[in-house]
Amino acid sequence: MIEFSGVGHRFGDRVVLSDVDLTLPERRVAFVGANGSGKSTLARMINGLVLPGEGRVLVDGLDPAKDGRKVRKHVGFVFTNPDSQIVMPTAGEDVAFSLRGTGLSKAERARRAAEVLAEYGLDGYAEHPAHQLSGGQKQLLALCAMLVLDPAVLVCDEPTTLLDLRNKRRFAELLGTLRQQVVLVTHDLDLLDGFDRVVVLDGGRVVADDEPEPALRYYRKLAE
């Protein structure tokens, strides 16, 4: 369960979030809003990439402001551009990179990496140069690098912006099958099939918070 209580934040003079109170026990949650609405900042607070200026965030009882490292093990994060996240030359090595410091042997890390790649549609790609994968495959790789640690929560910040329509659909379907609690930040309203809850942000405030249908109706009206 993710809880925001009285959360506010500013970058310099610009207020990016104010008075956010949310309790999110649902398995599939989306943050929707225009550019600069504060949705990405809110999502980053879930694993402590941004700490709230005011108020408090709790993720399954963990406070990112106090236990940053623990929270980041508990919450995986997928970014818009997978190139930011891919550190190692091959797909297998990159997934295994996530497992350094777990005490597993090198062979065991490689085996686990190959397993996870196989499970999410990159079977046989362990030896493949990571940067020669297609855009869709790279985003899958970024996802695998997070899932290999088996986090309880997965936050995705506009993960499909750089993907084509087919890969976008596949990524969305995949998100649907995960056992993790998923928080998705997106502009892409097609991705929200099967979501339990949609939070609409505007100017740093929550302006709608509902099931997808009514929330999105509100968001479309806001955009007009």
Partner: peptide, 19 residues
């Protein structure tokens, strides 16, 4: 070394594009 392995051919020509 990692960059040259990740993007072979960087010395000689523009980066091989992902897609």
């Amino acid at each position: 070394a990692v960059v040259h392995r990740a993007l072979p051919g960087t010395l000689t020509r523009p980066v091989v594009r992902g897609e």
